[in-house]
Design a protein around this nucleic acid. Structure first.
Length: 350
RNA sequence: GACAUAUUUCGAAAU
């Protein structure tokens, strides 16, 4: 029995639900009796993948075999329905479990709140939240985070900030997820000074700001042409020994180019290559555009050649930028020459 | 012994 239980758990953890299903069947066929947890783990695995029909089958099977489902069993069913977007059906199951004599716990409510938020029903989610309070349940960080995420995604940033206040007032300490969610929301709403404060607060409190979040903040700052804060962010990353990725390098280079700091941009290009990141076409084009902006057309031309040497073919954009600039400066011959070269390489500039 | 939450890619030329 122990072996089967272990196998079922293991398979579900690895995402091999079908194998877990086989073990469960085999267990029953050999007249062992799986317990609630065995059944629930399998149901959980199925629900996480939205395979609700099969989850129902197992639920029926367990009841037929005289095994009572627990709150957790129901929670997984409810979660699965939320995952496939059937929140109404999920709410229906809450009633089913109540009729069966089980009180929903804070996990049940958190699942519902998250589900409602993910389909944009924020007011409803708030109602469920209040209902949980009315039941004497204490919302935890995850409950708040789910509600917070919904409000951030829905652009309700002021409400989101109010939620943070509530958290402090109810002694629910915000965690890394709270801050990351808020930071992402503020970036999405272009509220960069607040986003930067959240970022600083995270650093102060020792919460890790992940690379994706840093990149999206940096991208927002670049969009706003806020080179000062962007470069502060990049430099801080370097100080703290964060690893850069290709996107991060691209954004940094882009930021430098916009600020006309071409030497820095070039240094970063070499640095990223020596760290074995391959610059993409946008990284190169940003640099070409940066040189053009400064009228350094020969450097821009060199960059085209550098690309060719390093196995990245300049695209229509690369050529367009430079040809246009040649014309602007009255270097008609160079423009024509580059156009011809582009054609030879199979690109037709417009 | 099983359970819930967030995680960029809206980016470069032209138009």
């Amino acid at each position: 029995t122990l072996t089967y239980t272990n196998m079922i758990h293991c398979m579900c953890l690895k995402g091999k639900v079908d194998d877990a299903l086989c073990f469960l069947d085999e267990m029953i066929n050999k007249n062992y009796t799986p317990d609630v947890v065995d059944y629930t783990v399998v149901i959980s695995g199925l629900c996480k993948r939205g395979r609700m029909e099969q989850a129902y089958e197992i639920l029926e099977k367990m009841q037929k075999n005289g095994c009572e489902p627990s709150v957790w069993t129901y929670n997984h069913i409810i979660d699965g329905l939320c995952i496939v977007g059937q929140v109404e059906a999920a709410l229906e199951w809450v009633r089913v479990m109540q009729n069966g004599g089980f009180d929903p716990n804070i996990y049940t409510y958190t699942i519902l709140i998250d589900g409602l938020c993910k389909v944009g029903k924020l007011d409803w989610a708030k109602e469920i939240f209040d209902e949980a309070l009315g039941m004497g349940l204490k919302p935890n960080v995850v409950t708040y985070n789910a509600l917070l995420n919904g409000h951030c995604k829905g652009g309700k940033l002021n409400e989101a900030l109010t939620l943070i206040e509530d958290m402090y007032q109810t002694d629910c300490e915000p965690d890394r997820v709270t801050y990351t969610t808020l930071l992402q929301g503020l970036v999405k709403g272009s509220r960069f000074s607040e986003a930067l404060s959240v970022h600083d607060e995270m650093e102060e409190k020792g919460y890790e700001v992940n690379l994706q979040t840093l990149n999206s903040l940096a991208r927002g700052l670049c969009r706003e042409a806020n080179h000062k804060d962007a470069s502060r962010l990049f430099k801080r990353m370097q100080q703290r020994g964060y690893a850069h990725d290709a996107t991060n390098y691209y954004l940094w280079i882009h930021s430098c180019c916009m600020a006309q700091e071409m030497e820095a941009a070039q240094t970063l290009l070499y640095e990223m290559m020596s760290n074995s990141y391959t610059p993409n076409i946008m990284t190169y084009n940003t640099i070409i555009k940066g040189f053009c902006k400064q009228g350094r057309l020969d450097d821009a031309t060199k960059m085209i050649n550098f690309m060719l040497e390093n196995g990245t073919n300049p695209d229509i954009v690369s050529y367009n930028i430079l040809i246009k600039e040649f014309f602007k400066q009255g270097r008609v011959n160079d423009a024509h020459q580059l156009y011809a070269a582009a054609l030879e390489r199979g690109v037709v500039p417009s």
